[in-house]
Design a protein around this nucleic acid. Structure first.
Lengths: 132, 132
DNA sequence: CAGGATCCCAGAGGATACTG
DNA sequence: CAGTATCCTCTGGGATCCTG
């Protein structure tokens, strides 16, 4: 097709944008990452420092933890606060978006409980990271 | 550690079981797979045959589509109905569990819409598979 | 028509060691 | 303390071709 009107072009752009910014895809992107949900779960229960997160999730390596934290921070899901001290101190906490995202995780939890009801299941948040 | 009591052993087993059957992990397992959500979305709108699914999702190859369908079927999310005809005819549909799972996807959608509200976003189900 | 069988590759993420 | 820097592995899924 040729001779696009400005309206056509704008519609096309919005189409492209709606594809690029599909809400479901966006949510998947934010949540996908082996340690992102564990991190969210940890921070859901309070502000934590890097070392505390590392201690709570013994199986994640510093490099990977760092990567996931950076991703979540750049996506506006968590907040990174650096204190100018020695030794350095950094605190991570959930943003409002982050807290809302935890409720999505809870929706998954509910479905999972129902899905597994014939199995011998119980919710154990720890499994999110201890058994990976 | 040694000299486990029977109680210890049972507790360990339940620990392992609760880890193995963590609802959130279970949900992730069921949903993870590039084409599972598109398939669920398709079937949410009606019973479909293999060829129809293939046509609706042009970018998936038969082998991969088959794999994902088998996984969803074995997990009790979709139903596979084989008709003894020539040429063969197979119909796929959602189970009750599958329909419930779609509501989880909708929870993601809602969060995503809110998350992207400063961007120029609109829900476009097509993007789930056409733009991958 | 509805798939199965093979081969292959990119990219997430783990292991290990080092640093401002 | 809070990370970086490299290297390496493993697996999901795509390409291609074949069949009951």
């Amino acid at each position: 097709m040729k001779n696009h009107s400005i309206a056509d072009i704008q519609r096309d752009k919005m189409q492209a944008a709606s594809e690029k910014f599909c809400p479901v895809i966006a949510t998947i992107d934010v949540l996908s990452g082996k340690w992102k949900m564990p991190i969210l779960w940890e921070l859901y229960h309070g502000v934590k420092r890097f070392g505390e997160l590392k201690e709570a999730m013994p199986k994640v390596t510093p490099g990977v933890l760092s990567t996931q934290l950076q991703a979540l921070a750049s996506e506006g899901i968590i907040r990174r606060e650096l204190y100018a001290e020695v030794p350095p101190k950094v605190e991570y906490s959930l943003t409002a978006n982050g807290r809302a995202l935890v409720s999505v995780i809870c929706a998954m939890e509910e479905w999972g409980i129902d899905y597994l009801k014939n199995a011998n299941s119980a919710f154990n948040p720890d499994c999110l990271w201890t058994n990976v």
